[in-house]
Simulated scan of single mutants.
Amino acid sequence: ESILGDLKGRIERFIQLDGLRLATEAGNAKATNVVLIGVLSKYMDFPEEAWQEALVARIPAKLLELNKKAFAFGVAEEH
């Protein structure tokens, strides 16, 4: 807890969330990185289509829907 308090005091935009929980809810804990990319996408000036195209280009077809869901969970997470 003290580490989080220290970080909040030092970082202008501090976001705390349970990415592992969100990824698990999406279907696989290994999708935590995609949840975090979803969060990041809200703060970067790229259109939604570009993020979705990147997922399609980089994620194997058998895992694509799960990762799209994980991405959407990250986008929807309130901070």
Rank of each mutant, 00 (worst) to 15 (best):
V39W: 03
L20E: 13
I3R: 09
L40M: 12
A54H: 05
E65F: 04
S2E: 10
N67C: 08
I15Y: 00
T32A: 13
R10Y: 02
A29K: 13
G27V: 04
D6S: 09
L63C: 03
L7Q: 02
G9R: 06
V35C: 11
L55G: 04
L64Q: 07
L40R: 04
P47Q: 11
F14R: 01
F73Y: 15
L66A: 00
M44Q: 08
E1F: 06
Q52K: 14
E25Y: 04
A50L: 13
T24Y: 12
I15C: 03
E12F: 10
A31P: 02
L55A: 11
L63T: 06
K68F: 15
E49P: 00
V35Q: 04
R21S: 15
L55H: 06
N33I: 01
L22K: 08
V34C: 13
E48N: 09
E65L: 08
G38D: 08
T32F: 02
L63F: 14
E53I: 05
I3W: 15
S2I: 10
G19V: 05
D18F: 01
S2V: 07
V35I: 13
K68L: 14
R13C: 07
V39L: 07
A54M: 13
A70P: 00
G9A: 10
G38P: 07
L40W: 06
S2T: 10
A54V: 03
L20I: 09
F71P: 03
L20R: 14
E49C: 05
Q52D: 07
K8D: 00
K62D: 09
T32S: 11
A70M: 11
I59C: 05
E48Q: 11
E77H: 14
E78H: 11
I59R: 04
I59M: 06
A26W: 08
G19Q: 10
A54E: 07
S41F: 00
E65A: 10
K68A: 07
R58G: 03
N28M: 08
R21Q: 15
A72Y: 06
R13M: 08
W51T: 04
E25A: 13
E49W: 01
E1D: 11
E53A: 15
E78N: 12
S2M: 06
R58A: 09
K8N: 01
L66Y: 00
I11G: 03
L36V: 02
V39F: 02
K8W: 02
M44I: 12
S2N: 06
G5V: 00
L40C: 04
G5M: 03
N67Y: 05
K42W: 05
L17G: 01
V35P: 03
F71M: 08
G5P: 01
P60I: 13
R21A: 15
E48V: 12
A57E: 12
V39E: 07
V56D: 15
A31W: 04
L64W: 05
F14Q: 00
K30L: 15
M44L: 15
K8P: 00
L36T: 00
K69L: 12
G27I: 05
S41L: 08
V75K: 15
L66W: 06
R58Y: 05
V75H: 04
D18V: 07
D45K: 13
G9F: 03
P47L: 05
G5W: 01
A29Q: 12
W51S: 08
G27T: 03
A50C: 07
A70W: 12
D6R: 02
R13E: 09
L55Y: 07
L17P: 01
K8T: 00
L7P: 01
L7M: 09
R13H: 07
